[in-house]
Nucleic acid binder design. Structure first.
Length: 930
RNA sequence: GGGCGGUUAGCUCAGUUGGUUAGAGCACUACCUUGACAUGGUAGGGGUCACAGGUUCGACUCCUGUACCGCCCACCA
C-alpha cells in the first residue's frame, strides 16, 4: 500500500490555495485559449465582472457574485469553449474622493489647500497603494479572471472611451446642459443622479404656517381670517417662496383668487396662483411654491413664470438671499424660522409626519433638491431601444420576474444627471472660450444659458453654442475666435458614465481591437438586483447605442446576501461576516461551496453555514485519499484509462449514477442553477460514492488480486476522476490539489497538466443495458443492508455482536444478486454468515424484515427476547394496514380510475400489491409467536 | 401609494410542468473510535406544507382572498 504519510487525513486549504492560484496565473491558464492558438472560430464564452469599487473590500455579496461567475467560467472552460472573464474595478468618484479627503482632514487640510492637480496626485497615490485590495481578495477566492486584461475605469483606454461616448452623444443631441432641480449632497458638495439618492422613510414634521393676505378688505371675504395656512416639511425653504398655489376648483379658496400674500420674515409680496397639480385633499390645500428648492415647485414655477430664488449655498447653508438667516445651516435655519414665526404668531402647529427623504448613497446625508446647472443625458431614446431589444427577445432575465422591474424602470426613465462637482473622475470634455462667451451672453442671462434642453431635441446634431467647445481631443485654441484662453468645465462625470461602457470599453472600444471583434457581445451577466438600474439597464442602453448590439443576452440576478439576524449587513450592526476570515479559517473552497449551495434565493448568512462546505471538502479529500491508497498496481502504467468489460453490478450502478448526475448538473448549470447543481453533486459524492460505492468496494479490494479487483480499482479511479472534474468549478483548489496527486498513484492519470483544462465529463455514448438492472440490484442490496441494521438497532443488539443472517428471495434474479453481494452484505451488516435461499422456513430463532422482492432474517437464539419482536412486528403491520386502506380507497374511487393517467393507476396497484406481500410475510412471522 | 418575494421539521432551506407514504443540512436521541474521513458512520424521533375558500379523481404545487415578514420603486408639499 502507498505510504499514507503523504496524505494527511485533514485537507489543509491554507497550504494549497495560494500556491495553486499563483501557479495558474503564472502559467497563463486564465487567458482565453485563442490567445495561444489564434483560433477565432467557435463562439467564445465571455463574462465581464461587475466592477467593484476601488475603495472596497470583498464582502460576502462579492464572494457569492464572483463564485457564481467563476463556476460559469470554469465550467465553460472545461467544456472546451474559448473562455474569457474580464476583471477590473471602477474609480468610484465620490467614495474615493471622500476617502482621500478624510485622510487629508487628519492633517487639517482640505482638497482646496492642495489644489486640483496636487489633490489628484494624492488620489492616484492612494489608488496605487490601496486600490488593489479587492482584486487581491478576488484571487484568494479563486476567481479565474484574465488579469492580463484587467481594466480600471480611469485608465487611459477607458478614459478615451468615456470621451468618445460623451462627444458622440453630444453630437447626436443626447447630452445637454441645463439649469434644473437635481439631487444635491451638501456634504459631498456635488450633484447626484436619481439612483444615487436613496429614499428612506423618516419621522419628520408637517409644519403649518400662516401667511398674511396682502391689502385691505380681505378679512371680510375670508371668514374671520386675514391669513392663509400652508403646510410644509421644510419650513426653511419658505425664504425662497415666490407664490402660494391652490387648485382652481377648490371652493374653499375661491375668494383668494387674484389676491397677494405677504411672505413672512422676508416681507415679500407673493401671488396666489391656480394650479391643477395641487391636491386639495392634502394638507391645507394650499401649497407654498419654492421653485429653486423643489422639483414640483420648479415645474409649477415654469408654468407660471415665477422667479427662482435660491436661498442656499452648496454647503446647505442659507445664503445672502435668506436675509437674517444667512450663514445658518439648513437644519438650524429650520428651527430658527419656526421660532421666529412663532414669535410673530404665524406658527400654527407641527404634526408628526412620516415621509421618505432622499439620502446620499455615499455619506447618508439628507439630499437637498437644489437648483443648479448640470449636464444631462437624454435617456428616452436610449431606453426605447433597450425596450425594443427586449421585445425582440435579445435580453433575458433569470429568474424571469426581474424582467418587469427592468422594463418598468426603462418605461418611466428620466434624464440622467451626469455631472459631479468633484475632482476625482473623468473631467467633462467641454471647454469654454471666455472671449466668445462674453460676446455671446451680452444679451442673455449668463447663468441660464442652455445648450439644449429636454424636449428641444428634434433630431439632427445640436450645434455648439459659440464659446463652448465639446471635443474628443483637448483643444489648443478656440475654433471661433482663435483665442488661447480656454477653460475646461471643472466638473467630472458620474462614475457610472464610465461603468456603462464596461462590456466594450474593457475590450478596447472605441478602437477596433481584435478583442472587441472576438469577444463582444459577451455571454452572461451575473449581478445582484440592487444594481439593475445603476448598471445593467445602462450597459444595455450603451451597448445598443455605441455597438449596435446588446452587450449580453442572459442576465442572472442572484440573491442578496444578508445577515442571519435579518436585514442588511452593516458595520454599525456588527453583523458583518468577512469572507476573508472564512477563507483563512476554512478555505476558499468551503466558502464558495457553502454559498453556492445556499444561493437558490436570498442568502441569510451566519458563520456556521460555512461548515457544510468545510465538511464536504474534507469528505472529498478523504474519499480521494481512500481511492489513491487502493490503486497499487497502477503505478506501473498498466492502467489504460478504459474501463474493462467485466464490471460488477455495483460498478455498473455507480457509472449509471454518474451519468445521471452529469446530466442533471449540466441542466442546472445551463439555467444558472448553482444551488441545485451543487446539491446534486454533494449527494452523489457523499451518499452514492462514499456511503455505498466505496463501502461496497472494500471487500473486493481486500480480497487479493483478481480481475474483479482490478475492475473495481479502475472504476474507483474513473469515478473519482470524473468527480474531481465535476467539482472543480465549485471547489477549484482542493480538486486541483488532488488532481495533481493522482499521477503518483495511477501513471496515466492526469492527461492534462491542470484540472482547469480537464475535459468536462460527458455521459457515456452507449449505455450498457445491464446498467438499469444494476440500479435495481443495488436498491435491493441497500434495502437489505438497511433492514438488517434496522433489526439490530430496534432489537438493541450490540454493534460488536456478529449475526447469522438469511436472505430469502424467490425470484432468481434477486437471488443471484444477493449471492453476488454476499461479502458486501456480510461486511456492511456486520454478519458472521449469510445464507441466500429461494425460500426459508422461519422458526422462532429468527426474526425477519420483509420487502416486496425478498425477506431478510437474523438468527436471535440467545440474543433477543421474542416478546420484543412480537411488538415490533405488530407495529409494522398496523402501519402497513393504514397505508393499504388509503390506497384501496383511492382505487375504489370511480373518478380516479376514470381520470387519472394509466401509469399513476398502475403505480397505485403495484404499491398495494407490494404492501400486501410484505403484510403477509409479517403475518407469517407473527404466527410463530402464538 | 405602487410592484415583487417569502411563510414547508426546533433552526436554515430544497421541492422541476398538479400524481409513490413531502426531502436535505444543522440541531436532537441511541449506538459505533470498523484499516478514507468523529469535519466521520449507522439507526431514529420530529411537519394539520401560514390561514380561509375555490378548481380537480387528486393541491405543498393552480386560482381568489386574509394575515404576518422582507425587499424594491415613487417629486403628495
Amino acid at each position: 500500500m502507498t505510504d499514507e504519510k503523504e496524505l494527511p487525513s485533514r485537507y489543509q486549504p491554507s497550504e494549497t490555495e495560494s500556491r495553486w492560484y499563483q501557479h495558474w496565473e503564472s502559467k497563463g491558464y486564465f487567458r482565453p485559449l485563442s490567445d495561444k492558438t489564434g483560433n477565432t472560430g467557435a463562439k467564445p464564452y465571455v463574462i465581464v465582472i461587475p466592477p467593484p469599487n476601488v475603495t472596497g473590500v470583498l464582502h460576502v455579496g462579492h464572494a457569492l457574485n464572483n463564485s457564481i461567475q467563476d463556476v460559469l467560467t470554469r465550467w465553460n472552460r472545461m467544456r472546451g469553449r474559448d473562455t474569457l472573464w474580464v476583471p477590473g474595478v471602477d474609480h468610484a468618484g465620490i467614495a474615493t474622493q471622500n476617502v482621500v479627503e478624510r485622510k487629508l482632514a487628519k492633517e487639517k487640510k482640505t482638497r482646496h489647500d492642495l489644489g486640483r492637480e496636487a489633490f489628484l496626485k494624492e488620489v492616484w497615490k492612494w489608488k496605487e497603494e490601496n486600490g488593489n485590495t479587492i482584486t487581491r481578495q478576488l484571487r484568494r477566492l479563486g476567481a479565474s479572471c484574465d488579469w492580463s486584461r484587467e481594466r480600471f475605469t480611469m485608465d487611459e483606454g477607458l478614459s478615451h472611451a468615456v470621451r468618445e461616448a460623451f462627444v458622440s452623444l453630444y453630437e447626436k443631441g443626447l447630452i445637454y446642459q441645463g439649469h434644473y432641480i437635481i439631487n444635491w449632497c451638501p456634504r459631498c458638495r456635488t450633484a447626484l443622479s436619481d439612483e444615487e439618492s436613496v429614499h428612506k422613510e423618516i419621522n419628520g414634521n408637517f409644519y403649518h404656517l400662516k401667511y398674511p393676505v396682502a391689502g385691505k378688505g380681505t378679512k371680510a371675504e375670508l371668514p374671520g381670517e386675514d391669513h392663509i395656512v400652508v403646510a410644509t416639511t421644510r419650513p426653511e425653504t419658505m425664504l425662497g417662496d415666490t407664490a402660494v398655489a391652490v387648485h382652481p376648483d377648490d371652493e374653499r379658496y375661491k375668494a383668494l383668487h387674484g389676491k397677494k400674500l405677504i411672505l413672512p420674515l422676508v416681507n415679500r409680496e407673493i401671488p396666489i396662483i391656480l394650479d391643477a397639480a395641487v391636491d386639495p385633499q392634502f394638507g391645507t390645500g394650499l401649497v407654498k411654491v419654492t421653485p429653486a428648492h423643489d422639483p414640483n415647485d420648479f415645474d409649477m414655477g415654469k408654468r407660471h413664470g415665477l422667479a427662482q430664488i435660491n436661498v442656499m449655498t452648496p454647503e446647505g447653508k442659507i445664503n445672502e438671499l435668506g436675509g437674517a438667516y444667512q450663514g445658518l445651516d439648513r437644519f438650524a435655519a429650520r428651527k430658527q424660522v419656526i421660532a421666529d414665526l412663532e414669535a410673530q404668531g404665524l406658527f400654527v402647529k407641527s404634526v408628526p409626519h412620516r415621509h421618505s427623504v432622499g439620502h446620499c448613497y455615499r455619506c447618508e446625508t439628507v439630499v437637498e433638491p437644489y437648483l443648479s446647472k448640470q449636464w444631462f443625458v437624454k435617456m428616452k431614446p436610449l431606453a426605447d431601444r433597450a425596450l425594443k431589444a427586449h421585445e425582440e427577445g435579445k435580453t433575458k432575465f433569470y429568474p424571469n420576474r426581474w424582467t418587469k422591474v427592468y422594463t418598468n424602470w426603462l418605461s418611466g426613465i428620466r434624464d440622467w444627471c451626469i455631472s459631479r462637482q468633484i475632482w476625482w473622475g473623468h473631467q467633462i470634455p467641454v471647454w469654454y472660450c471666455d472671449h466668445c462667451l462674453k460676446s455671446e451672453i451680452a444679451h442673455s442671462d449668463k447663468e441660464n444659458f442652455v445648450i439644449a434642453s429636454p424636449g428641444s431635441i428634434s433630431g439632427g446634431a445640436k450645434q455648439s453654442q459659440r464659446g463652448i467647445i465639446v471635443a474628443r481631443e483637448t483643444p489648443k485654441k478656440c475654433p471661433a475666435c482663435g483665442g488661447m484662453d480656454l477653460v475646461q468645465d471643472p466638473d467630472v462625470l458620474d462614475t457610472w458614465f464610465s461603468s456603462w461602457l464596461w462590456p466594450f470599453s474593457t475590450l478596447g472600444w472605441p478602437e477596433k481591437t481584435p478583442d472587441l471583434a472576438r469577444f463582444y457581445p459577451t455571454s452572461d451577466l451575473v449581478t445582484a438586483a440592487e444594481i439593475i438600474f445603476f448598471w445593467v439597464a445602462r450597459m444595455i442602453m450603451a451597448g445598443l447605442e455605441f455597438m449596435g448590439e446588446v452587450p449580453f443576452s442572459r442576465i442572472y440576478i442572484h440573491g442578496t446576501v444578508r445577515a442571519a439576524t435579518g436585514l442588511k449587513m452593516s458595520k454599525s450592526l456588527g453583523n458583518v461576516i468577512d469572507p476573508l476570515e472564512v477563507i483563512d479559517e476554512l478555505g476558499a473552497d468551503s466558502l464558495r461551496f457553502s454559498m453556492l449551495m445556499l444561493s437558490a434565493q436570498d442568502v441569510y448568512l451566519s458563520k456556521e453555514k460555512f461548515e457544510v462546505g468545510r465538511n464536504f471538502t474534507n469528505k472529498l479529500w478523504n474519499a480521494s485519499r481512500f481511492v489513491m491508497m487502493n490503486l497499487e498496481g497502477f503505478k506501473s502504467g498498466s492502467f489504460s484509462g478504459n474501463l474493462p468489460d467485466n464490471l460488477s453490478t455495483s460498478d455498473l450502478w455507480i457509472l449509471a449514477r454518474l451519468d445521471q448526475v452529469i446530466e442533471t448538473a449540466d441542466a442546472h448549470l445551463e439555467g444558472f442553477g448553482m444551488a441545485q447543481a451543487s446539491s446534486e453533486l454533494y449527494h452523489f459524492v457523499w451518499n452514492d460514492f462514499c456511503d455505498w460505492f466505496i463501502e461496497l468496494s472494500k471487500p473486493v479490494l481486500m480480497g487479493g488480486d483478481s480481475a474483479e479487483k482490478i475492475a473495481t480499482q479502475k472504476v474507483l479511479f474513473h469515478v473519482l476522476d470524473r468527480i474531481l472534474r465535476l467539482m472543480h468549478p465549485f471547489m477549484p483548489f482542493v480538486t486541483e490539489e488532488i488532481w495533481q496527486k493522482l499521477p503518483a498513484y495511477a501513471s496515466d492519470a492526469s492527461t492534462s497538466e491542470t484540472i482547469l483544462y480537464a475535459p468536462w465529463p460527458v455521459k457515456a455514448v452507449s449505455v450498457p443495458a445491464q446498467r438499469a438492472n444494476a440500479c435495481r440490484a443495488v436498491e435491493w442490496l441497500q434495502k437489505a443492508v438497511s433492514g438488517l441494521r434496522d433489526l439490530r438497532m430496534t432489537l438493541n443488539i450490540p454493534a460488536q455482536q456478529t449475526l447469522k443472517a438469511v436472505v430469502a428471495a424467490p425470484d432468481a434474479e434477486v437471488l443471484r444478486t444477493f449471492e453476488r453481494f454476499r461479502p458486501q452484505i456480510v461486511r456492511l451488516a456486520r454478519l458472521e454468515s449469510l445464507e441466500v435461499l429461494a425460500t426459508f422456513q422461519k422458526t422462532k430463532n429468527y426474526m425477519g424484515q420483509a420487502y416486496p422482492e425478498f425477506e431478510v432474517f437474523i438468527g436471535i437464539e440467545g440474543i433477543v427476547d421474542p416478546v420484543k419482536e412480537k411488538t415490533r412486528i405488530a407495529a409494522k403491520m398496523e402501519e402497513l394496514r393504514r397505508f393499504m386502506t388509503a390506497i384501496s380507497q383511492k382505487l375504489s374511487n370511480d373518478n380516479f380510475v376514470k381520470n387519472a393517467p394509466e401509469e399513476i393507476i398502475q403505480q397505485e396497484r403495484e404499491k398495494l400489491e407490494d404492501a400486501g406481500k410484505v403484510l403477509k410475510a409479517h403475518e407469517e412471522s407473527l404466527e410463530l409467536f402464538k
